[in-house]
Design a protein around this nucleic acid. Structure first.
Lengths: 214, 214, 214, 214
DNA sequence: CATGAATGAGTTTTCATTCAT
DNA sequence: GATGAATGAAAACTCATTCAT
């Protein structure tokens, strides 16, 4: 493996180029999901996209740039969705926000399984942390607008938790449909109750918690 | 090169061999956690264990067998722990069981981070599914003994969910200690409340759920 | 390492590639003859052909495929020759056919010693049997067209015998030239007389065989 | 691969040692026939013989010494048989000698297929040539005692040819029994006629050869 | 003598990346 | 831009041989 070239990824100028880049990214995404990032070879990607290996390198001079490009695209799509969501749930109860967020993420991950694959790669490159950070920020924002208001620290924690809960749901996508369905509801309700509990009438708190370990 | 699986994994018969196998597995586990499975080379493993590459292949004729051996070991340790746990929580409330299970898994994963790394590898070999299946079965058992009783289907779901919640907790282990601490408690309490809620006095059920989306 | 046969043998599409493939096969053939199949390394082949090891694997992803490619080529050449021969000897006496076949094979093996080397490798892969079978069929055909006609079963036997006689002749190619010369003639005449004898005037048969062991 | 040790093969002193050596040689011979010399590993040989790899090296410090030991044994057995044969066929007709020799070799090779395998290895070590030379000499002797006498040069040639004819018969040992049987007879009669022809009444020679290419 | 672990040079094979056309 | 051949460092894996007990 020679040192990665410094040449930046060529930006496709014409329509034809943009289509080609899209098909290369699609092929790569599909393969990353099927076999994992490491096990997928550049040659395989090119060939699945019906392109020559040279063409692939024209646009993505280093394998990682493919991952980055795919993730940049998905991150911005997700970001847009979350932004739209933000408008819809402003000033709702945290439980409702969680519910909506849950659905949004579920749909997104179902449509773009490669997102999880690439975000969970070992190693911690900067661009990956950056994407995670941005997502966390956006989700925290979402919860910060809840009414009644959440403690900012909890919003932070939820921003970490919710996406992971989603991954749980995804992991079992290979399971029987019935199980998956139930699982989904269970997770969603768990989250909802959690938030409901924390923001119920504080007076009844201590007495009502049958699980308090104290 | 003839097919890789013809050469059987030698099982060490003398003390010296057993020690070497242990040190090789330890070196491999450490490296898998540090750099990921794919990025770790056999040469590196051998060298970290202070062994010759040939010695490594003597016991683990294919890289995958290392992963399998490590996982087989960890799976049986975890299984033993869960069995012990089962005796301690028999006939407790589901919420309590969840709490105890949560702690048990947390400790196990903290001590054996390689467990998560190897179980989450891309691809779906049989031995990996088998390990997952066994774990699910054991955890479901745990919940099936709860009192008041859970629906068996829910026990199944929880057996899927709890380990994932744990992973969530682990994933963020790179975060600031303060955040991690809070996160941990948040997850645990989420689970506890969820179970508490579902199995509280049934009479007050419908009226008391402030989050019902209906 | 994933199973070796997933990476398909690239077939060269440009002139440059075809030339390289030819030179790789030539280098391999030469080395197989010089040192035997097993003792020849892929590295050595590439280097003798003036190519990088990666280029060799580009076209021959497994060592065996080199042997196969070489044999496929030679087998088709030999087949063509035998077909041509068939036209020349149609309806001749079996002894004459044998003689001509003998010469044809002798020349072929002298020009392509690797043919014998690769056909005689230990193990019995399918492609090797297939080549042998085809050759047998073609030679049997040759003898089936003899006049007077041979019993089909004998044609079959000859198809097995003649190539081996040739090998005999080749094996001793390391001997002194004088001996080799005589040997060659001896083998050829043995075959000729054998066939002549069996198909002479049947009336004198029994009485004339001075060697009958009866 | 380190340089071959200079330590000579240990000669087994006690009965137990001799038995072990025999079983090691038997295991090696069997494997050499099954998979070829190169493809057979020392470890495999030891394990098939139920011995430790260390024990194998105790008696055969280099892989080649195994081949040599096996061949030395077989060569002397064959030599003894040929010597016995010599007494039985003294002063017989060359055709009869050939016939008897044919049978003798056939039986020997059927019983000891490893003989052919090891004698035909690529490369030309001295010990191998020596064995071939000795065999040739002995067979030439056989024919030199024929009556009427053969030209010494022809005896030499036959000494080269007959063993090869035998190999022909062996090569097809995988064929259907019927074919094999017929093949055997065909080869034997070919040889018999060849010798009969050459030593018939010289007066009728020219006229009687229907295949003379002149 | 026996044994089984250990060794490491040598082989095959892979694949990200570059180059010539 | 496009293509397909070329590259070679690095990885996986082998196995004859040696060594410690």
């Amino acid at each position: 493996m020679r040192p990665a070239s410094l040449r930046p990824a060529l930006l496709p100028q014409r329509e034809r180029g943009r289509a080609r880049v899209a098909s290369l990214m699609a092929a790569a995404a599909a393969l990353f999901v099927e076999k994992g990032y490491d096990a997928t070879t550049m040659t395989e990607i090119a060939s699945r996209a019906g392109a020559a290996i040279g063409s692939l390198y024209l646009f993505f001079p280093v394998k990682q740039t493919l991952a980055q490009a795919i993730m940049a695209d998905l991150a911005s799509r997700l970001s847009a969705r979350l932004e739209a969501l933000q408008d819809r749930v402003r000033a709702r109860h945290a439980a409702e926000i969680a519910d909506a967020l849950f659905d949004e993420l579920a749909q997104f991950l179902a449509e773009n399984p490669v997102y999880a694959v690439l975000l969970d790669l070992p190693g911690d490159e900067d661009w990956r942390s950056a994407i995670r950070l941005q997502r966390r920020g956006q989700i925290a924002q979402l919860f910060n607008q809840a009414s009644p208001a959440l403690a900012p620290a909890q919003a932070e924690r939820l921003a970490l938790i919710v996406p992971q809960l989603m991954r749980t749901a995804m992991v079992v996508s290979g399971q029987s449909p019935a199980l998956r369905e139930g699982l989904f509801d269970e997770l969603r309700s768990m989250l909802r109750h959690h938030l409901a509990w924390q923001h119920r009438d504080p007076l009844s708190s201590a007495a009502a918690d049958p699980t308090s370990s104290a």
